[in-house]
Design a protein around this nucleic acid. Structure first.
Lengths: 342, 342
DNA sequence: TGGGTTTGATAAACCGGTATAGCTCCTGCA
DNA sequence: TGCAGGAGCTATACCGGTTTATCAAACCCA
């Protein structure tokens, strides 16, 4: 016997297919004795449900999707996604739901994928990352009636479910820490302003500046690449009144910035303090090791999976779950500013 | 009309379900005129096949799986997987086959996943990575009769299909380059000897040593972590006759090694040359930028997908495809050894 | 002109589950 | 004693495709 079906089990147990289905799904309709017997036989025959058959009958596929729209080149350096993925899977595995992952080049393709997934019934729901300002995916997913949860963007009313951490508070904690050390010229090398979280971080710096007495607190946007991170750093350090501290929106850019500082003979942390808004092994491999904001990305993913399953179970509700706040891990790249402040 | 089924199309076209199925799958049984008409109607109604229904009828799910058994912590720093994934997807997308990705902690769990996938008919085949010596997954997959392709391990007879690059030649090219620069003490900080590719690389170094007149060419194994990479480097550099060049089996370890060298006051490349057996943005971010072996990982993945699809189409055949050889990208971390050789 | 083959199509079975209507007993209660 | 009601189970339709057996009409060639 190759792979047993419930019909095989039914024959062995001397009952009907229906009874077997009831027993295996823990629903009423069979006596405890019969259920016990059927379960034992199913176990013996090492029966497992045929996913397609179940999907067809029950109109759910026990599978969720996740599309990452970034050029592959910039991916993978950041442990962010690997951790997020593991977290998502850990959240899904409890219900033994599988994950479809797709890496695409742009948002247009991403939306295409959602359409295809919806029309082919390939997933029960999706997880969104990298929420942008006026994100076109939101409306699309609503139109497709595909359950979804957004990672990292707290939605307003009528929005999709979401799981988010407080970027604003996190950025404030960094700037406040630097200000407490005595820094007054703090620069912010940001990511792309298309992303909502970038906007929130920039706003946080801007709002905190007067209160903390910062002389200058520019936020310069980049495309998140090491190249632009380096170029922006070079520009900042070439200024007459150069900053005494720089906050980078990613670990990769921070590392690139550190390289530029060394190349220009600017000592870290003596002349310049560096903070990365995102932690990883990268920041720890450096000399000096970088002070960085650590987020529990795994937990982030786990919660996203949980929320998605809830939304799939009851699409009517909108859940907005806030996760643990990130914490600043202070290492060797931050110190009080040099005395001879320009 | 929510989602049209072939029955809807059949009605609109005034034909039977079977005819529609034939037409949509490009198989004989309908006239060209009818086929044309059916296709147009399907297009108009924007019909897409219901994946579960198709899977149930045709007993193939148009989905392949890939399990990565590594602790999430060590994943993601290496762009290797991100590139590999993109490549695999690009190879699959042509046939619009989807990919199930799973990150697990160990091989035992990985095998569990294969069993589940096989019994639930969730995938048509799988892609294996990180082949080990006497890999238990091979026999398991054969027993499950699950089509598979191994990435990076060329199998012997009776083995699974595979896609591989020549690790031996690659390692030789590195060692020969260093020898040509004048190095005679070359150390090799290897990965874990459990992996087949590690073994092949170690063997390559050992075999080349006499021919190239190397005085000493130890291969020291590690667990691929930055910690062990650093520790091993520290040990090597503390020796009386320390090596003038070190080859690292991964970019992360090479970066960690560079850190140790700097910390110990050993100048790179003045006193020590460093080569990474694997390229990434990491190696380019360093100062000095690291000489590294570049592999076309994307292409690697693409070919793996291609081969897997062929194996799925005809499970009888065993394909062993060799991909393009890696090339050495020389950067700033390699130079002739110092004069005062111990 | 007639028998055999090919072409174009249909109806129905089938894949392996789930959902539901309905049947048979058994129990409880008036 | 009779009947309502529920527990336990069966039979069957159904999900949306694919596949096969069957068949009528057209076509072919002697």
């Amino acid at each position: 016997m190759v792979r047993p079906t419930i019909a095989d089990i039914a024959i062995r147990a001397g009952v009907s297919k229906g009874a077997v289905s009831f027993a295996l799904n823990g629903r009423p309709g069979v006596s405890d004795a019969t259920r016990e017997r059927i379960l034992k036989i199913a176990e013996q025959m090492s029966w497992r449900p045929h996913s397609a058959a179940r999907a067809l009958g029950a109109s759910r596929v026990d599978s969720v999707g996740m599309v990452i729209a970034r050029p592959a080149r910039t991916l993978g350096v950041e442990p962010f996604f690997a951790h997020l993925l593991s977290g998502v899977q850990s959240g899904l595995s409890a219900e033994s739901i599988s994950l479809q992952l797709l890496i695409v080049e742009d948002t247009a393709t991403e939306i295409e994928v959602y359409r295809r997934w919806a029309s082919e019934h390939r997933v029960d729901g999706v997880i969104l990352v990298d929420l942008t300002v006026k994100d076109p995916r939101i409306d699309e997913l609503k139109a497709l009636e595909l359950p979804a949860v957004v990672i990292g963007g707290r939605g307003g009313k009528g929005a999709l479910a979401s799981v988010w951490a407080d970027d604003r508070d996190a950025m404030l904690s960094i700037v406040e820490y630097l200000a407490a050390l005595g820094h007054r010229r703090i620069a912010h090398v940001a990511g792309t302003p298309l992303f909502q979280h970038t906007v929130r971080r920039i706003r946080a710096v801007r709002d905190a500046a007067p209160r903390l007495g910062l002389v200058d607190a520019p936020s310069l946007t980049t495309d998140f690449s090491d190249a632009e991170g380096a170029a922006t750093t070079r520009k900042l350090l070439s200024q007459a009144n150069r900053p005494t501290a720089i906050v980078y929106d990613s670990d990769v850019m921070a590392v690139a910035g550190l390289g530029v500082a060394m190349e220009m003979g600017v000592s870290v942390p003596g002349d310049l303090s560096i903070v990365a808004f995102d932690d990883s092994i990268l920041t720890q491999l450096m000399h000096p090791a970088l002070t960085a904001l650590s987020r529990d990305t795994f937990e982030f993913g786990r919660q996203a999976a949980e929320v998605l399953l809830e939304v799939i179970a009851d699409p009517a509700q909108t859940i907005n779950r806030r996760t643990a706040d990130p914490v600043l891990t202070v290492r060797e790249s931050t110190a009080p500013p040099p005395r001879q402040v320009g």
